[in-house]
Amino acid sequence: MTTTVGRRPEPVVTTAPPVARLRRPGWKDPRLLVGIVVVALSVALGSWAVSAASRTVAVFAAGSALTPGTAVTASDLRTVEVRLGSQTDRYLLAEEGLPDDTVVLRTVGEGELLPASALGAATELAVRAVAVPVATGLSERIVAGAAVDVWYVPGQDDSAPVADDDVADEGSSAEPELLVGGVDVAQVDEGDGSLVVGGPVTVHLLVGVDDLPAVLAAVAGEGTIALVPVGGAG
């Protein structure tokens, strides 16, 4: 009888996978190049934004009150340095000078920056200058560039016949009437009586075309005209 000796199974040898090693990215790595470009653009954009926000420009400002219809010259203005940011187009830059053949279209207060829209052709004016005599004393606030309300105080018509006392009383008790509000003052001319309180004064008002009939009728009427500064008594 033959005895067969069994062989032991050969051990299976397993090979471990290679360990991945991190490599330092080189200068030619696209990801590194993209990151550098993004950082550089961010720094440049931030620097530009800060520089633009802090940059000042020279613009015109009114040296004194400018009223509609005035032909502006360099002597009427002064130059100031301001930060306008994105609003540069709204104002007149000193380096560009004043446009030719233009007048003031709306009142510009003393020291106010001169908007480009405040100047235009004389044909664009929507107001007319009217000389209004004022018999009563004026408020100190009524100066060129100020805004006033125009009131008409009816007077007693001496030429009109008086039928009875009731009619006379009714005519003498007529209440003042507001003709137009918020009218700009172009000029104040004080007469010989200006040294006396309540002396006669002529005020040149810039009246809208639609309000001219009422104001002119009041100037030619028997009553008197009173001017009240807008915003309260002076």
Rank of each mutant, 00 (worst) to 15 (best):
S86C: 08
V72L: 05
S159T: 14
G69T: 13
T224D: 02
V57N: 00
A53E: 12
T2K: 01
Y152E: 00
A71W: 12
G145Q: 02
L212W: 11
T102V: 15
S194R: 06
L22P: 09
P11A: 12
G85M: 07
H204Q: 00
G109F: 13
S75G: 13
D164W: 02
L105M: 10
Q187A: 12
G109R: 07
V57M: 01
A94R: 11
G26A: 08
T79Y: 13
A61Y: 15
A131Q: 02
A62Y: 02
G231N: 02
V43I: 07
D210Q: 15
Q187S: 13
R83G: 09
V43M: 07
D192L: 14
D158L: 13
R106E: 11
V150W: 01
S51G: 11
E110L: 02
G181H: 10
G182V: 14
L92T: 08
A126D: 15
E110Q: 10
S172F: 02
D89T: 14
P229S: 04
V148A: 05
V209N: 08
P9M: 09
L98A: 00
G97A: 10
A214P: 15
T56Q: 04
T67Q: 06
T70H: 14
V38W: 12
E124Q: 01
T202L: 04
V201S: 15
R31Q: 02
A218S: 05
A220Y: 03
V183G: 05
L205E: 04
G63W: 07
S64E: 09
G155F: 04
D76T: 11
L98V: 03
L32D: 03
V104C: 12
E96F: 15
A74Q: 06
L77V: 08
S54N: 10
W27P: 10
W151K: 01
F60Q: 02
T67Y: 11
L216N: 12
T14F: 15
T3F: 06
R78F: 05
A160G: 05
T56R: 00
P213N: 04
L32S: 06
P99M: 05
V183D: 03
L66G: 07
L179P: 14
A94G: 12
E140Q: 04
A49M: 03
V203K: 00
E95F: 07
V162Y: 05
D76K: 10
L45P: 05
P154M: 05
V5A: 11
G46Q: 08
V37W: 15
V13Y: 14
A74R: 07
V230T: 03
V230N: 00
G199V: 14
G198F: 01
L33P: 02
V57L: 06
V207W: 03
Q87N: 12
L92E: 05
V228L: 15
G155S: 03
G111M: 12
D29G: 12
T15L: 14
T15K: 11
R55S: 08
W27V: 12
T202E: 11
L33M: 13
G181E: 10
T224H: 00
E140F: 10
P229F: 04
L178K: 09
Q187N: 15
A147N: 13
G145D: 06
V80R: 05
E110K: 10
D149E: 02
G35A: 11
V207E: 04
V180P: 03
P200C: 00
L66K: 04
V150M: 00
E10P: 14
T67K: 06
V215W: 05
P25G: 04
A53Y: 14
G208C: 00
L178I: 14
